[in-house]
């Protein structure tokens, strides 16, 4: 921001600032994608290649530091931390994606119905949403998990239920803003049946914001899963998850911080990556929307 280009020194083109911002976004976005890629590849490929077994006890190497045999060291029972972290990644990603998908699949149609139909449907859905939002999300998930009993599907449901209202609200708001657009009116004038309008006009146009929102929630769901497992009401033992690993390592925090550090770093990097991707996705959407 010094001076303007003047009479004589006119450059052929000013450097567009938009592009610069995008380049900055690209960098973090690539790192985030790279981490998730590495995690997934490692999750699938490393255990068979290295012969990792998350449950194998090695009594000769309890609390061992990183070594050629145990890359990240071992825990109190001599189990390989890398093996457990990677095995836990499977559960965490499954629960994260699965519970978000459940929440979206329930919440979005409800929200669309409320937004499109208005009146009674809106009143009923909004009431349910308000009631659900009245509970603190984590407490609700806790209660549900405790009530349903520990199992992977139950954990997914327990995490999904508190997320449903957010999806319903988003879908309702998006649908209502679409309803003011003339193309929906145009479809109605043609005589398009309501279901067809929802499927062909509304769904494609709310997919992007819903996806971006879902991505953020995958991170949150992984976090909640960690919390539930940490409290011992999540995924049942002996299946390792990042949450249970942190819980188990708690006792040995001073003795062997690696036990907590390994799952924590995995969790942090994963959630950070997902959030960065979500941010980038949201940003792209807004710049595109603003430009057109």
């Amino acid at each position: 921001m010094t001076t303007t280009t003047t009479a004589t020194g006119g450059r052929p083109a000013g450097t567009p600032r938009v592009r610069k911002r995008r380049a900055g976004g690209d960098w973090t976005h690539v790192v985030a994608l790279a981490w998730l890629g590495v995690l997934i590849v490692a999750m699938i490929a490393l255990p068979p290649i290295l012969g990792l077994d998350p449950l194998a006890l090695d009594s000769t190497a309890r609390f061992s530091g990183p070594s050629g045999e145990h890359w990240l060291g071992t825990d109190d029972l001599g189990r390989d931390l890398l093996a457990r972290a990677l095995d836990g990644a499977q559960v965490s990603l499954l629960v994260g994606l699965g519970s978000t998908a459940i929440a979206a699949l329930v919440g979005v149609p409800l929200g669309m119905l409320a937004g499109y139909r208005g009146r009674l449907a809106d009143a009923v859905v909004s009431f349910l949403v308000d009631v659900l939002l009245g509970f603190p999300g984590l407490v609700l998930a806790l209660g549900l998990a405790a009530f349903l009993g520990p199992s992977v599907p139950n954990v997914m449901i327990a995490i999904a239920v508190p997320l449903v209202p957010a999806f319903a609200r988003l879908a309702r708001a998006q649908t209502m803003s679409l309803l003011t657009r003339e193309f929906i009116e145009a479809s109605r004038v043609i005589g398009t049946p309501t279901l067809s309008i929802m499927r062909r006009d509304i769904v494609p146009n709310i997919t992007e914001p819903v996806l971006a929102f879902a991505l953020v929630n995958v991170g949150r769901a992984i976090l909640i899963e960690g919390g539930l497992s940490f409290l011992g009401i999540g995924v049942p033992l002996p299946q390792p998850t990042w949450g249970t690993m942190i819980n188990e390592g708690r006792v040995y925090l001073t003795q062997s911080p690696a036990i907590i550090l390994a799952p924590s770093v995995f969790m942090m990097l994963t959630i950070l990556s997902i959030n960065l991707l979500a941010d980038r996705y949201l940003l792209d959407r807004t710049t595109v929307a603003g430009g057109s």
């Binding site: 921001m1 303007t4 280009t5 009479a7 450059r11 000013g14 567009p16 600032r17």
Partner: peptide, 14 residues
């Protein structure tokens, strides 16, 4: 008005 900044556009003339 002078609303464009150097990064926005390239301006020649007076």
């Amino acid at each position: 008005m002078g609303l464009y900044r150097p990064g926005d556009a390239s301006i020649e003339g007076d």
